[in-house]
Design a protein around this nucleic acid. Structure first.
Length: 592
RNA sequence: GCGCCUGUAGCUCAGCUGGAUAGAGCAACGGACUUCUAAUCCGUAGGUCGCAGGUUCAAAUCCUGCCAGGCGUACCA
C-alpha cells in the first residue's frame, strides 16, 4: 500500500462515518498533518463541514471522532478542537509503506492520466561568450523541470536553442578578424568558448574608442545573411570552437539535450511566416517618416497591452526594414519548427524574467497567426543573479564564469573529502568522483532551493557552503544510511526480522511522515514547475533522518526485531533521498 | 508615466489553492564525539509578516489603496 492509497483509505472511513452521523457525505474532505507527530499521523479538519451541516466544527469533530471505530488501519482516534487526529496501525504505517518504497521503482511518481508531449527549451546560450552563473541557474532549472515532468510520464523533449547568429556574434568575429592574427583555441591553449569570448570583450573595448566598428559589424551581419562565403567560413570556424567548449561544460554539469536548434537554421522560416502574415494583413509594413523606419511590425491588441501615449496601439517590430531578422523573427520561426518536428502539446521556455514582455508578445503573435498550439506555450521565467557588486554584465566582464565556479567548489569539496579520510587516503580516481558529485550537488541545490521567480544574490562564501540547507547536507544523510546498511549486512541484521509495531517514537514518526508526504510534494512541484518545493522537502527528509540518527541506534538497537524495523525505515528514507535528488539532477554517494 | 515582479528574524529564504503556537538555513552565544561517518545533533536569543483599510468564525495568505526596491517598456537578446 503506498502513501496515497493509505490516505485514501483513511479518508474513505472518515467520510463514511460522517455520512452515518449526519446523513450526507462531506462535500470536501482532505487529510492534513498535525503540527506535532505526538498528536497523530493524520488529521481531519472539520471547518468545511461546519457550513454544510450547520454545526460548530468542534461539535462535528467530537461526534465523528466518537463514531469512528478503530480497525486494522486506524489505531486511535481523538478529537482536538475542530480537528480529528488519527493514529495509524504501526504495521501499516511503517511496514507496508517502507516495503512499497523499497520495492516499487515508481513509488514517488504522480503519474498523470493524460500524458503530453512537452518541450522544455533551456540554456539557449549565445555563441559569443562562455557560460556563466546565470546559465547554471537556467540549466539546473531546465533539467529539474524536465525530470519532474518525465516522472509524471509526460514525453519530454529537452531542447537547446543555440543563438549562433546576429549582430552580437558578428562582433566577436570582427574582432578576431581584425586583431586575431590567426590565433586558435589550440594555439593559445584556451577552451573554445573562452577564446571566442575574449574577442567579444576585445570588440567592446575597441568599439568605445572607435564607433565605426558598430557599422562594420552591421555590414558583416548583412554579408552573413547574404551568404558571403568568407564570412560564413569564419563564422563556422568560430562556432565550432564555442560548441566544443560548451560541450565540456554540459558534460561536467550534467546538462543533457535531446535536440539542438540553431537560430541560423530557423530565422529563415521566421521570415517566411512574416511574409505570409504580411500578405494576410496580420503584420504591417510601416510607412517611412520621422517616427518609423519602414519595418514590418505587429500591433499588439490594446485591450491586453494598453496603448502608447498618443493613443495608438503598441507595436512590435518583427522584421527590420533592410530585411534582416531580429530575435522575434527567429523565435517565431523556431516556435513553429518545434511544433512541426515534435507535435507538441506544451512548449516551455526557460528564460530569464527580463524577457517576460518579449514572450508575452511572442505568444500573442503566434495566436494572431492562428496557430492553435499557441496556448500551450509557457515562459518559465527566473530571477536575475546579482553579484555583491551588482548585476552581472558579460560585456564588461562582470560575471561569475561557470567553469571557474565549478572548479572552485570542486577544490573546496576535495579539501573536505581529504580532511575526512586522512587515515586511509583515497585514490585520485575516487577523490575525483566524490568531489564532482558533491560540488555539482552544492551548486545545483543552491540554485534550485529558492523559487525561480526570486532574484538570487550570489554570495560566494555561502554558495559553496556544505552546511545547513545545502545539497551536500542531503547527500551526507544518504551516505550515512549507506554506511549503516553496509554494517548491518556484515553483522547480519535483516529487514526480514522487522517488527514494525516497535516503531513509533517521535523521530521515527517525523521521518515516516516525510516519506508519506513525498509523492504529494513531487506532484505540487510539477504543477507549479517549482523544483524549490522539492528541494525543501528533500532537505526536511534528510534533517528528520539526522535527528533520528543522533538519538537512536539502528544496528545496536535493543532487539533484532527493532533493528530490522529501523533498518527498513532508513532504507526507505535512502530511496526517497536518492530519488528526490535525482529529480533535481543531483547524484548521491555511498561514502563521503 | 505605464506594465510585470518582489517586500516575512541581523542576512538568505520557506510558508501565499485562507485554518492548530509564523518556520528553516546562515551568522551569534551555550552544550553533545570511548557509541552505526560531528559535512551531524540539542539548546538560547532573534519577527508591528512593507504601511493602511476591507472581506471572513479565522488573513503572512484573498480584495483595494499607498510606500520602497528590481526588471521591462522592442529597428538588443
Amino acid at each position: 500500500m503506498d502513501s496515497r492509497e493509505l490516505k485514501a483509505a483513511v479518508l474513505d472511513r472518515i467520510s463514511k462515518t460522517i455520512e452515518k452521523v449526519y446523513g450526507n457525505l462531506p462535500e470536501t474532505a482532505s487529510l492534513v498533518f498535525p503540527p506535532s507527530v505526538a498528536l497523530g499521523d493524520f488529521a481531519f479538519e472539520c471547518f468545511p463541514l461546519a457550513k454544510q451541516f450547520r454545526k460548530s466544527p468542534t461539535d462535528i469533530a467530537d461526534k465523528v471522532a466518537k463514531a469512528l471505530e478503530t480497525d486494522d488501519l486506524i489505531q486511535k482516534i481523538q478529537a482536538a478542537g475542530p480537528y480529528i487526529n488519527i493514529m495509524m496501525n504501526r504495521d501499516v504505517l511503517f511496514g507496508a509503506l517502507c516495503k512499497e518504497i523499497m520495492e516499487k521503482e515508481s513509488f514517488c511518481s504522480p503519474v498523470t492520466d493524460t500524458p503530453q508531449r512537452i518541450m522544455v527549451e533551456y540554456l539557449s546560450p549565445n555563441t559569443n561568450k562562455p557560460l556563466h552563473l546565470g546559465h547554471l541557474r537556467n540549466g539546473s532549472l531546465g533539467m529539474a523541470v524536465s525530470n519532474l515532468l518525465k516522472a509524471c510520464v509526460h514525453k519530454v523533449i529537452k531542447t537547446n536553442l543555440i543563438n549562433n547568429r546576429g549582430i552580437h556574434i558578428c562582433k566577436s568575429m570582427l574582432a578576431w578578424q581584425q586583431w586575431g592574427n590567426g590565433e586558435t583555441p589550440e594555439s593559445s591553449g584556451m577552451k573554445g568558448d573562452k577564446f571566442v569570448g575574449k574577442w567579444y570583450v576585445r570588440y567592446a573595448r575597441e568599439a568605445e574608442k572607435d564607433p565605426s566598428l558598430e557599422n562594420k559589424a552591421r555590414q558583416m551581419l548583412k554579408q552573413w545573411e547574404d551568404g558571403d562565403p568568407d564570412i560564413i567560413r569564419l563564422w563556422e570556424m568560430m562556432n565550432s570552437w564555442v560548441y566544443q567548449g560548451f560541450a565540456e561544460t554540459y558534460q561536467k554539469f550534467g546538462l543533457q539535450f535531446d535536440k539542438f536548434y540553431y537560430e541560423s537554421d530557423t530565422y529563415q522560416l521566421g521570415k517566411d511566416i512574416i511574409d505570409k502574415g504580411l500578405e494576410k494583413g496580420i503584420f504591417h509594413k510601416e510607412i517611412i517618416d520621422e517616427n518609423s523606419h519602414g519595418n514590418v511590425v505587429f500591433y499588439l491588441p490594446p485591450e491586453k497591452f494598453g496603448c502608447e501615449k498618443d493613443g495608438q496601439p503598441k507595436k512590435i517590430t518583427v522584421l527590420r526594414h533592410d530585411d534582416t531578422s531580429l530575435y522575434m523573427t527567429q523565435d517565431i520561426g523556431t516556435a513553429l519548427l518545434k511544433v512541426n518536428d515534435f507535435n507538441l502539446d506544451r512548449s516551455i521556455y526557460v528564460v530569464g524574467s527580463e524577457q517576460v514582455y518579449h514572450f508575452q508578445c511572442l505568444f500573442e503573435i503566434l495566436k494572431a497567426l492562428g496557430f492553435s498550439w499557441a496556448g500551450g506555450c509557457y515562459h518559465l521565467s527566473y530571477g536575475m543573479v546579482y553579484l555583491p557588486e551588482g548585476k552581472m554584465k558579460s560585456r564588461e566582464g562582470k560575471v561569475v564564469d561557470a567553469d571557474d565556479l565549478i572548479e572552485e567548489v570542486e577544490r573546496l569539496a576535495k579539501e573536505e573529502i581529504c580532511k575526512r579520510n586522512i587515515e586511509k587516503p583515497l585514490s585520485e580516481e575516487e577523490i575525483r568522483t566524490r568531489q564532482s558529485v558533491i560540488a555539482m550537488g552544492a551548486i545545483k541545490f543552491y540554485l534550485l532551493r529558492v523559487r525561480s521567480i526570486q532574484d538570487i544574490h550570489f554570495d560566494p562564501q555561502e554558495s559553496i557552503s556544505f552546511d545547513g540547507f545545502t545539497g551536500p547536507y542531503c547527500q551526507y544523510a544518504y551516505a550515512r544510511i549507506s554506511g549503516i546498511l553496509r554494517n548491518a549486512e556484515e553483522i547480519g541484521i535483516s529487514i526480514e526480522d522487522a517488527d514494525f509495531t516497535l516503531l513509533g517514537n517521535e523521530e521515527e514518526l517525523q521521518l515516516i511522515q516525510k516519506l508519506i508526504q513525498f509523492p504529494d510534494e513531487v506532484g505540487l512541484s510539477v504543477n507549479d514547475l517549482n523544483p524549490a518545493r522539492l528541494a525543501v522537502h528533500i532537505f526536511n527528509t534528510a534533517k528528520s533522518f539526522n535527528q533520528f540518527y543522533n538519538k537512536h541506534q539502528v544496528i545496536h538497537a535493543q532487539t533484532k526485531q527493532l533493528a530490522g524495523a529501523r533498518l527498513s525505515l532508513i532504507k526507505a528514507a535512502a530511496q526517497v533521498l536518492k530519488k528526490g535528488l535525482a529529480l533535481l539532477n543531483i547524484g548521491v554517494l555511498e561514502k563521503m
